[in-house]
Nucleic acid binder design. Structure first.
Length: 433
DNA sequence: ACTCCACAGGAAAATTGGGGTA
DNA sequence: TACCCCAATTTTCCTGTGGAGT
């Protein structure tokens, strides 16, 4: 008999292919509302034709404004136009946020032979630097080094990393090295020291946020590329655009929403993709963000977050660093994991705060010391679920939350409680502002 | 005005683990 | 195999601090 699943399978493959134009890694041929930026970039990079090295470039703009896509597109066009003369190296500094890994990745992307690739650890920075330099010289042409999320790199050891990498341009003799820096922060340059700033600040291009109608153009064009334009209602496109516009004009989010909406429609055998798909997609999108950021957490951050969630579950009005740390240690015990020091936990708490998974407010509780008051924002049940997907955490059964935190033992019970309730109310109300 | 809690967070030492060299 | 070098991570040690209690 014929496999009854085949018809679905072939359908899926087909749809997956069509939906790749709505994936975040897809680089389109045309960029609506970005022709100014593209023209500027082309003008600057085209100095290669006259055999003079392009100025260094800085691209500014919030996330989802097309910086990365445009940079990739234009630099690829340059490479296509002058294949013998130009090499483009793209590095995401969020993933490679040390001098070491940037240099290794840069070198490895030039080295063609697998066997000569540089190992991901072991070499000295100097040795890698020299090897990269050697490779660059060997090429003797124009190298364009794209540093995406360059601010992540600049923050590391006083921007020394950035300085070393920019120095490549001076040290390379027979090749010319240019840089394209990409960043979300408008004030990025100001945070740099002079020696780095002057090198980088030759040309800059701003990518303004998209408004709703621009987003609609972009979405419509992408939807047309999928060949499913007939299925997608105009109102759905508009809604995606509106949601993206609300999020500082984020095209990435708008496109993701569109893709998820369509996926939901296909899955449910719907004939039309309408607004309700988009609303469903938005929920799914938020959940995916949460799930991914939790999945990507290192083990101890997961345990710590679990401790925060469980603690808040049982004891809403008393979440301070010390208590979460105590419970963290208990969970570590239960999971037979060696626990980390409180100093380290302090840093991990800050990281969780940066990720938006918890909210921390440092404040002084007077007689009861100076600490951070911690809140787990909504979704705590969902967080717990995702946390327990971890293969180490999934043996977690629950712990007894001791109430023996020193704050409560030493202090007069009723008084300390009112103090803390006031504190928590302050925090909650200040968050709403 | 002074104390002192319960940490925050900087600096530096120690540990871990990949990789090279003899 | 023993040993060195190095980056990253974590610990150890430390100084600083806002404000309720006294």
């Amino acid at each position: 008999m014929t496999n009854p699943f085949f018809k679905y399978r072939s359908n899926e493959v087909d749809n997956d292919l069509r939906l790749t134009v709505l994936s975040s890694s897809f680089i389109p041929d045309s960029f609506p509302h970005r022709s100014d930026q593209i023209d500027q970039m082309v003008k600057i990079l085209s100095s290669v034709m006259r055999n003079s090295p392009p100025s260094n470039l800085l691209l500014y703009g919030k996330s989802g404004t097309g910086k990365t896509s445009v940079a990739k597109k234009v630099s690829n066009l340059l490479k296509e136009a002058f294949p013998e003369k130009v090499k483009v190296i793209y590095i995401n500094c969020q993933l490679n946020d040390s001098t070491y890994s940037v240099l290794v990745n840069a070198a490895n992307s030039i080295i063609a032979n697998e066997n000569e690739k540089i190992p991901l650890s072991g070499w000295t920075v100097e040795r890698i630097y020299n090897e990269l330099l050697r490779q660059i010289e060997k090429f003797s042409g124009f190298i364009v080094l794209v540093l995406d999320e360059i601010d992540k790199l600049a923050r590391k050891n006083d921007g020394d990393s950035l300085y070393v990498i920019l120095k490549l341009a001076d040290d390379a003799k027979s090749s010319r090295v240019s840089f394209i820096g990409i960043t979300n922060y408008t004030s990025f340059l100001e945070t740099l020291e002079a020696r780095v700033r002057s090198r980088l600040n030759q040309e800059s291009i701003v990518f303004p946020s998209y408004n709703a109608s621009q987003l609609r153009d972009i979405l419509q064009e992408r939807v047309n590329l999928t060949g499913m334009a007939g299925m997608v209602e105009e109102s759905a496109v508009s809604l995606c655009a509106a949601i993206g516009a609300r999020e500082h004009g984020d095209a990435r989010k708008a496109i993701d929403l569109m893709r998820i909406s369509i996926e939901i429609g296909i899955r449910d055998f719907m004939e039309k993709i309408g607004e309700e798909n988009v609303y469903k997609a938005r929920d799914k999108y938020e959940m995916n963000i949460l799930r991914e950021s939790i999945n990507g957490l290192p083990l101890h951050s997961k345990i710590l977050l679990l401790s925060a969630v469980v603690t808040q579950d049982q004891d809403k009005d008393n979440m301070i660093t010390g208590e979460i740390y105590e419970n963290y240690k208990k969970i570590c015990d239960e999971l037979s994991v060696q626990s980390l020091t409180s100093r380290r936990i302090g840093d991990l708490l800050s990281e969780l705060d940066d990720l938006g998974l918890i909210i921390t407010v440092t404040r002084s509780l007077g007689r009861y010391g100076r600490t951070r008051v911690i809140t787990v924002p909504d979704h705590d049940e969902l967080m717990k679920k995702y946390l327990l997907e971890d293969e180490v955490l999934n043996t977690f059964k629950g712990i007894k939350i001791g109430k023996q935190h020193r704050l409560k033992m030493d202090a007069d019970e009723s008084q300390s409680r009112t103090v803390k309730e006031d504190e928590m109310n302050d925090i909650l109300s200040s968050r709403k502002e």
